[in-house]
């Protein structure tokens, strides 16, 4: 197989979020972390890299301050790490995000034949980007993959739907993986040494020649009108002592004991 690129889309998410009551916007709090499912996707890419002649290009759309965090991906085995960062990207919904990712993949990763990412992100949980990106690239999309069986001219994957389905999919393709695929990427000692002289490549909207009206809020096809937090309104009776006795009496009626 000729040298090909596996693209891994990695999202950076905040450790915590809360609501700014004045602006009704989501506030990011705490440190940034990699979306855990994207690290599961990354590990799948590492396994395929070992078994083939492929290299791994990570693409992440994130604020510039996440450059140091993203640099860690070299230690996991990334050959390239591409950060797409521009103030015009702010407010992008899943469609605008997919558009930016599509443009970056086409313009920056010439030999890509497989895109892998997590099924959904911890913060948004929409799971929309995979399908939208695959459709924009006009390549097949299989989600909920828990095992990649082989990777050559086609990729053979297993996924769980109503049954366990095994698909042979023409490349290029986009697959999104579920938690069970593996335990997530870990630092690789060889990559650790190689990572020292590697740098994250940063691309802005202008460098990618993206039309302003196609990115950020302007390029979004959905709109968040309001955000609110469910407030707990507890009106029942709380048992604050000897709760075990109440539970035990109940369980005697309904369980094996």
């Amino acid at each position: 197989m000729a040298q090909t690129d596996i693209v891994v889309n990695v999202k950076v998410v905040p450790e915590k979020i809360s609501i700014d009551k004045e602006t009704c916007r989501v506030k990011r709090e705490g440190n940034s972390i990699f979306n855990p499912l994207d690290l599961v996707a990354f590990e799948e890419a590492v396994k395929l890299k070992k078994a083939s002649n492929a290299s791994i290009s990570v693409i992440s759309m994130a604020p510039l301050k996440e450059k140091d965090l993203l640099k860690n991906l070299f230690k996991y085995g990334a050959n390239r790490v591409i950060l797409l960062s521009d103030k015009n990207f702010a407010g992008s919904d899943t469609f605008a995000t997919s558009f930016v990712l599509k443009e970056a993949i086409i313009k920056l990763v010439h030999n890509f034949n497989l895109i892998i990412q997590g099924d959904f992100s911890l913060d948004g949980s929409t799971g929309n980007v995979g399908g939208e990106l695959a459709a924009l690239l006009n390549i097949p999309f299989i989600s909920n993959v828990f095992s990649i069986e082989s990777y050559s001219k086609k990729i053979i994957v297993k996924r769980t739907s109503e049954k366990i389905e095994t698909f042979a999919v023409d490349l290029p393709a986009l697959i999104s993986v579920r938690r069970e695929a593996n335990k997530g990427a870990v630092v690789n000692l060889f990559s650790l040494v190689e990572s020292l002289d590697k740098e994250v490549e940063v691309y802005t909207s202008e460098m990618l020649n993206l039309p302003e009206e196609k990115v950020g809020l302007k390029g979004s096809l959905t709109e968040v009108l309001n955000v609110f937090q469910d407030s707990p309104v507890f009106e029942g009776n709380l048992i604050t002592s000897d709760g075990e006795k109440t539970i035990f009496d109940f369980l005697k009626k309904v369980s094996n004991i």
């Binding site: 469609f95 799971g127 399908g131 939208e132 459709a135 959905t222």
Partner: peptide, 16 residues
Amino acid sequence: ETASYFAGKYNFGLIA
């Protein structure tokens, strides 16, 4: 899965 692919293909806004 189809919904997101359909949204991407025809540029429709999808509320997930």
